[in-house]
Amino acid sequence: SIKEIEKEEIIKVLKEVNFNKKLASEILGIPLRTLYKRLKEYGI
């Protein structure tokens, strides 16, 4: 599903940037606030 793909992509990017959420949100092209929402939604 799209949610699974998105979750995997978020985890992959977070690992690449050593869990720097600000940098991860910039790489993913989403606002930091949205990233936090996704992390909560996906239980990351």
Rank of each mutant, 00 (worst) to 15 (best):
S1A: 13
S1F: 04
S1K: 05
S1V: 12
S1R: 04
S1E: 13
S1N: 14
I2N: 15
I2K: 08
I2A: 13
I2L: 14
I2D: 14
I2W: 11
I2V: 13
K3P: 10
K3E: 11
K3S: 12
K3N: 14
E4L: 11
E4I: 10
E4F: 09
E4Y: 09
E4P: 09
I5V: 12
I5D: 11
I5H: 13
I5Q: 15
I5E: 11
I5G: 11
E6G: 12
E6Q: 11
E6A: 11
E6H: 10
E6Y: 09
E6W: 07
K7Q: 06
K7E: 05
K7S: 05
K7M: 15
K7L: 12
E8N: 13
E8G: 10
E8Q: 14
E8I: 12
E8K: 11
E8C: 10
E9H: 14
E9P: 02
E9M: 15
E9C: 08
E9I: 14
E9Y: 15
E9V: 13
I10A: 03
I10P: 00
I10F: 09
I10K: 00
I10D: 01
I10Q: 01
I10R: 00
I11K: 06
I11V: 10
I11D: 03
I11H: 04
I11E: 07
I11Q: 06
I11L: 14
K12P: 01
K12F: 07
K12A: 12
K12C: 06
K12S: 09
V13M: 04
V13I: 12
V13Q: 02
V13Y: 02
V13G: 02
V13F: 03
L14F: 04
L14H: 01
L14N: 00
L14P: 00
L14R: 00
L14C: 03
K15Q: 11
K15D: 04
K15F: 11
K15S: 09
E16L: 15
E16R: 14
E16H: 12
E16S: 15
V17A: 10
V17P: 00
N18K: 11
N18M: 10
N18F: 09
N18S: 10
N18Q: 09
N18W: 07
F19E: 03
F19Y: 14
F19W: 15
F19K: 03
F19G: 13
N20R: 05
N20H: 06
N20Q: 04
N20E: 03
N20F: 04
N20P: 01
N20G: 02
K21C: 10
K22M: 10
K22L: 12
K22S: 08
K22Y: 10
K22G: 05
L23S: 06
L23Y: 06
L23C: 06
L23V: 08
L23P: 01
L23D: 04
A24T: 05
A24I: 02
A24K: 00
A24H: 00
S25F: 02
S25N: 01
S25R: 02
S25I: 03
E26M: 13
E26P: 02
E26S: 11
E26N: 09
E26F: 13
I27Y: 06
I27E: 03
I27F: 06
I27N: 03
L28I: 05
L28Y: 01
L28S: 01
L28C: 02
L28W: 01
G29W: 02
G29Q: 09
G29T: 03
G29L: 04
G29F: 03
G29E: 05
I30T: 02
I30W: 07
I30V: 06
P31H: 07
P31Y: 03
P31W: 04
P31K: 08
P31G: 08
P31M: 05
P31C: 06
L32V: 07
L32K: 02
R33L: 12
R33V: 10
R33C: 09
R33M: 11
R33N: 11
R33Q: 12
T34K: 08
T34D: 14
T34Q: 12
T34A: 10
L35D: 00
L35P: 00
L35Y: 01
L35I: 03
L35H: 00
L35G: 00
Y36Q: 12
Y36P: 01
Y36N: 14
K37C: 07
K37F: 08
K37I: 11
R38Y: 15
R38G: 02
R38M: 15
R38Q: 09
R38H: 11
L39E: 01
L39P: 00
L39R: 01
L39T: 02
L39V: 04
L39I: 14
K40W: 13
K40T: 08
E41H: 06
E41G: 05
E41Q: 10
E41F: 08
E41P: 02
Y42A: 05
G43S: 07
G43T: 05
G43Q: 10
I44W: 11
